[in-house]
Amino acid sequence: MKKTKLEEVSSLIDGEYTGDLQSPIDGLLKDAELRTTWQSYHELGDWMRGAADESPVRVNVVDRVRSAIDAEPILLFPASQSPVVAPPPQSRRWTQFAGMGIAAAVASVTVLFFQQPGGLQGPEEGLAVATAPMTSSVPAVSLAAVGSDTSIADEQLAGEAFQRKFDAYLASHAKQSVGHRAQELLPYTTVVGYNAAPGTR
């Protein structure tokens, strides 16, 4: 039984443990001999790879660090704010989805705006359509970043600032688009309209 546990430690060190990590880590935390083996095997590897040699000293600060940390407050993250270490590909995918969400929102603005009957409504009406999907898209951008309460508050502020800037951009863009389109289309419409009038030919 003990040999199996020690072999587990060996494969754990190599990152070759197949299965849920919880069980062997629990074992390490409960068993002093396993912890000593964990330390010893790591040090052995450090020496073999040359990561420990050439050093004038061999340190052992385990007990000192443990004593110091015992006096420290316990770190506790809220459950909803589970910390992330070495973000897995899935997290990056969420970021990509967030980007795609923004792109889709912008695309929907464009499509919906240009599909308005007459196409010459005021920019505010067009924006009302545009901002709706953005409200749900913006928080998704911050999914990859998980931090303290302060950083979350900062992110929210940054999100709001971004939202305001983006709204202003859309308003400006819509205004310019309308004006530009009117300048381009109106003469054409005028010509066609007048030319199409009965009795002109």
């Binding site: 443990y17 790591h42 052992n60 660090v65 506790l76 270490v85 070495a86």
Partner: peptide, 26 residues
Amino acid sequence: IDGELVRRVQQGDKAAFDLLVRKYQQ
């Protein structure tokens, strides 16, 4: 493995930090 140990420390398990010290102290 480091990530799992860090996650445990962040959730209040001080003993998990001991394993990181043992691993990286040299």
